[in-house]
Design a protein around this nucleic acid. Structure first.
Lengths: 218, 218, 218, 218
DNA sequence: TATGAATGAGTCTTCATTCAT
DNA sequence: CATGAATGAAGACTCATTCAT
């Protein structure tokens, strides 16, 4: 049942990955030393190299086992549903992401900082590994629904997926600090989910009026 | 016209800030050395310390003069408009941010990585300096419009501001790479603006139907 | 038949010594890790410490069992011959060394680098253990032959032994690379032996002419 | 007049090279830390990286400026003499090497351990840089003298150059320890020079008798 | 103002060594 | 006998920072 048949005790290895992912989410990859990760996992820094050889290969493992194996696999489940209603799909996607951030609170900060950001330490590693097929299918589904008049035609299908990620991940990446910001105050992740779903469901619904969003800038 | 009446040539100082902000946006603050900044500005790293004493104080200057003085001042102008239609205000806000990212392409990546991200190098510095009064007024305006039945009541006024930031900043932070991602392909910043405005205008409009976004998770 | 009556399998022990000696000759002692030696012998590095306790004690064993037990014993046999003709003795010595380098190709590089070189890892260990009696007898034999007019009197008996070592060992320590050096090209160890013997036999023969080798430098 | 127009104070740079070369000769390259070199030169180890970037590039500089620029240039002068008597050339070569080891006592140990030895840290670097033309000319001169009957025909011209190096460099690499070895005792570098010249002059002289050095081994 | 030279603290990485199993 | 897991000490290298000129 081990994730990797390689060397070492699975417990320590897993503990190191857990520690890494939490510290990375709090301090960034560049701001986290191998020694800190080791300390949080209760071993010496030499053990990090025993299990992962280099810091860079530790990042590979994070991408493979945490981002892809845990998060993407979980969220992608929401798309593989044989469903044909894109709005329902969007809703399911949002709730999956919210749920994921409950199970893996380290995920959104890590994602925003190290995957989305240009030059993020995990960005290229993830792009190289991930299959964009599902996203393409999602985009196609939206476009089809637009043609059928069931979805607001002013929406860019290519940008919708990113909008969903943005609306969920970015606020969730700050979730730990929500109550420190007076403007936001006491809201829960459930509140966020409801807010985003409301925004998207309305936003996607086929416009009654034309709602021409004319670009101001040339 | 000098920003600071202190020592040193204003040109060199400004060049260092410009260089810093671009490199920070590309490599992150932790991933950028003082020497790199100096080199890009055509001086030695000792000069950085001459003008800013420490790297940390350089960050202070970036927050003060670039984030607050340039970006926030520019965007905040959209709120101080004596306008009372919150939807129009949202639209203006979106276009301001899009416009800002044209003038300062380094802004969105820097914002997402170092301001929004937990542990971001500029986060605490900015929070300590910024006045949230305008955002409070914005929130109040939305809430009032909801009571008046002009805005979708399922929206969380507290979260709307963050949603706008998310819908714009996060995609813009990747703008340089849009064409490298097949899913997105050839879209312009204008396209993004239109897309976001369409989404928000619809999303905010008072629901004809109830649009009950019931939370799934307890 | 075990060399050591101590613990452990003689085969593994011998395999480790063999591996050590080859790697030391290729990479130097300092450049060879215990783990490499273990791997080449097909065991783990913990085994090296089981058999030899420390790397330093492994070196002791190499000196004792490989250098003294194998090489010196073999070469010294050439001196113990009850012979009184020093030139014949020299010739026998040369061929012994050439022969030894066929049986133990790792020997000359190891010798040159770790025994002869100042600070060589085996140098002090070997000097402490070796009996120089035979070399003294050799020197005395040469000196006697000089007095008897049978050997070139310009030769330093003290230096002759080292000259023989130098003329053989140093070229042999590069034997693996001879063909890579255009200057040398295709020569065999036999060729080297013949060359050295020719040089020495002539060089030692009592001078017909005076052959005044006057030192230039004061 | 600086060797390198690059960065840094020439004095410190030169001091580091001097320190490096001495320590390398005493402890080997692998056995010498950057910090030791720095300490001996009176600076911190960071300065080594300031002047040479990496330890490997320090080795490049040693090869370039010490081995090639100092030693090889000096010795090669002995060959460029427009002389046609190969025996005189050999003699001159020997004395040059002896003289070089007086000026640069670190040279012979370094040469034997790190240039001649397989896997030596300077070996490949030097081979890549050095011009073997002079050695080829030397070899050709010997071969011609053999054909003319002026040099012992049992000598391998290809191997003679290496024999000269061996006869001088190897003993000189131990010169500091000569008096510690009873067998050798009190001899000077001049004594060594005379001994080697005597050996070679006789060894090269055209044999009166046939001096059949018949190989024993098949 | 501006620089080159210098440093100390810290980071990643390697390795000989130990020990429970 | 043999191993995998674990460690501490050290080594190369980086970088923010200082200072004399």
């Amino acid at each position: 049942m081990k994730t990797k048949p390689g060397k070492g005790s699975p417990d320590v290895r897993a503990g190191l990955l857990d520690a890494a992912v939490v510290l990375f989410s709090e301090q960034g990859v560049a701001g986290t030393t191998v020694a800190e990760i080791a300390k949080r996992a209760g071993v010496t820094s030499a053990m990090v190299h025993y299990y992962f050889k280099t810091k860079d290969q530790l990042l590979d493992a994070v991408v493979e086992e945490k981002l892809i194996g845990q998060f993407i696999a979980f969220v992608a489940g929401a798309i593989d549903h044989g469903e044909n209603d894109p709005v329902a799909l969007v809703e399911r996607l949002v709730w999956r992401i919210v749920e994921a951030s409950d199970r893996m609170p380290w995920l959104p900060p890590l994602w925003v900082r190290e995957v989305i950001s240009e030059g993020g330490a995990l960005r290229e590693k993830l792009i190289a590994r991930v299959d964009l097929g599902k996203q393409e299918r999602f985009k196609a589904g939206i476009a089809a629904a637009q043609k059928a008049g069931r979805v607001n035609s002013a929406i860019h299908p290519q940008l919708l997926f990113m909008s969903i990620i943005a609306l969920t991940m970015l606020p969730l990446s700050m979730a730990k600090n929500w109550d420190r910001i007076p403007l936001i105050g006491r809201v829960s992740k459930q509140d966020l989910g409801r807010h985003v779903v409301a925004l998207l469901k309305h936003g996607l619904s086929a416009a009654s009026g034309p709602a021409k969003a004319k670009g101001r800038k040339p």
